[in-house]
Computed example of a mutant assay.
Amino acid sequence: MNPKIVIIGGGSGLPVIIKPLVREAVDLSAVVTVADDGGSSGLLRDYINIVPPGDIRNILVAMADVDPEILKLLQYRFHAEDEFFAEHAVGNLIIAAMTEMQGNIFDAVQRLATFLHVCGHVYPVSNEPLVLHAEFKNGSTLAGESEITHAHQTIDHVWVTGDEPGEEPKAAPEVVTAIMNADMVVYGPGSLFTSILPNVVVPEVRQALQQTSAKQVYIANIMTQKGETDAYTDAQHLLALNAHIGAPVVNYVVSNSKKVPDDFVDFQKWNEISKQVKLDESAVKVQGAQQIAGDFLQLRDAGAFHDGQKIADKLMEILGKK
C-alpha cells in the first residue's frame, strides 16, 4: 500500500513540491486554505459568496494529468482592460460555476478533480469561506487575509471564523480523516501566517494534528516575509506553527542551507520578501524536532524558490522509501 501524505497550505508554494510528488508511489492529499480574499478569488467571494477558488485552482492544476493546453486555459487571466472579467482566471470562473451546480465547494472540487484526472485528492479545509483574523504585536487586530498581508505589521497570532461574526469554523470531515490516516503530514512551503496557519487553527484540524500518528514535517521558507516573519529563523517559524497547533507535533524541519546570492533576487518584483531565513538547529531541537539542512534552493525568475524535486526526494527518504 502506498504511503499516505497530506500537504497543508495554500498560495503558490504548494504546487512546487506537489508536482514531483504526484510522480511518486504515494497517496497524496492537499488541504487548501479557504481564507483568501484578494484578487480574483476575493472578487468572486464578494460577488457570489463562494469559497475563494484561487489556491484550489493552482493545486488542481499541479495534480492534474490532462493535456497541458487545458491547464493553460485554466490558468489564463483576462486582460486588465477586459472590464468585468479583468484579472479573473478562467479556472476560478469554472470553479465558481461548478460550485453553484454541485451546491457546495467540496463536491465541486471533487467533480473537477475527476474531469482533470487529478493524481490524489484536493480538499478545501472547509466547505464555507473563512475569515482570517490577526492580532499584531502592538495589540491591534485586523480581519481579512489581504488586509493582514498589506498591513506589514509584526503578527503575534491568527485565528479564523466563519463569514458571520462569531460563527465557528467547521472542517470538511474528509480533511480530518485524511490527517488521522496519514503516514506523513507536510506543512508548506508557503506564507506561514496567511497560507499555512489558517488551516491548522480550524479546531477539528488542530485536534487531528495533535492526535495523528503521522510523521509531521515543516518545509521552512527560504526567505522571510515582510510583516509576517521578518527576521524569523527556521526555529521561530516552527515555534509559531507548534503554538497555533497547540502542541510540539512537528518531527522534522527541512531547511535550505544554500546561500542565496546577494545580487540575484529582485526585491521590487518579489516585494513581499525581505531576507534569507537563518537556520537555528539547537532551537529546533529544543522543540523536539530534527533539522534536516541541505541545498534545496532553486534560483529562477530573479527569485529564490524551493527545488521541488529535492524536497520530494527528502520527504520520500524520511518515509523510508528512498
Rank of each mutant, 00 (worst) to 15 (best):
M1V: 10
N2V: 08
I5N: 00
I5T: 01
I5R: 04
G11H: 04
P15L: 11
A25Q: 14
D27T: 03
S29D: 04
V31T: 08
V32P: 08
T33I: 05
T33H: 06
A35D: 10
D37R: 12
L43T: 01
D46Y: 04
P53Q: 05
P53N: 05
D55L: 15
R57I: 05
M63F: 02
D67V: 00
E69D: 06
L71D: 00
L73I: 13
L73A: 13
L73K: 04
R77S: 03
H79N: 02
E81P: 00
F84H: 07
F84T: 03
A86K: 09
E87D: 08
E87R: 09
A89S: 07
A96I: 00
A97K: 06
E100Y: 11
Q102V: 06
I105K: 11
F106S: 12
Q110P: 11
L112R: 03
T114N: 05
T114R: 14
L116K: 02
H117K: 15
C119F: 09
G120C: 12
V122C: 14
E128A: 14
E135G: 02
F136S: 10
F136D: 05
K137I: 13
S140Y: 06
T141E: 12
S146E: 07
S146L: 06
E147S: 12
E147P: 02
T149Y: 07
Q153W: 10
H157I: 03
H157R: 03
V160Q: 04
V160G: 04
E164S: 09
E164F: 09
G166R: 07
A171F: 09
D183G: 10
V185N: 13
V186D: 03
V186Y: 06
Y187N: 03
P189F: 00
P198R: 08
N199C: 14
V200E: 08
P203A: 07
E204V: 04
V205E: 06
R206T: 11
K215M: 10
Q216L: 01
Q216K: 05
Q216G: 03
V217I: 14
V217H: 15
N221Q: 05
Q225I: 00
D230E: 09
A231H: 13
T233S: 10
D234M: 04
D234K: 07
A235I: 00
A235S: 00
L238F: 03
L239R: 08
L241C: 01
A243Q: 01
H244R: 04
I245P: 06
P248I: 02
K258S: 15
V260M: 14
D263H: 12
F264Y: 15
W270D: 06
E272W: 06
K278Y: 03
D280M: 04
A283P: 00
V284C: 04
V286S: 09
V286T: 07
D295S: 13
L299V: 13
R300Q: 14
A302S: 15
A304C: 04
F305M: 15
D313T: 11
L315W: 10
M316V: 11
K322L: 15
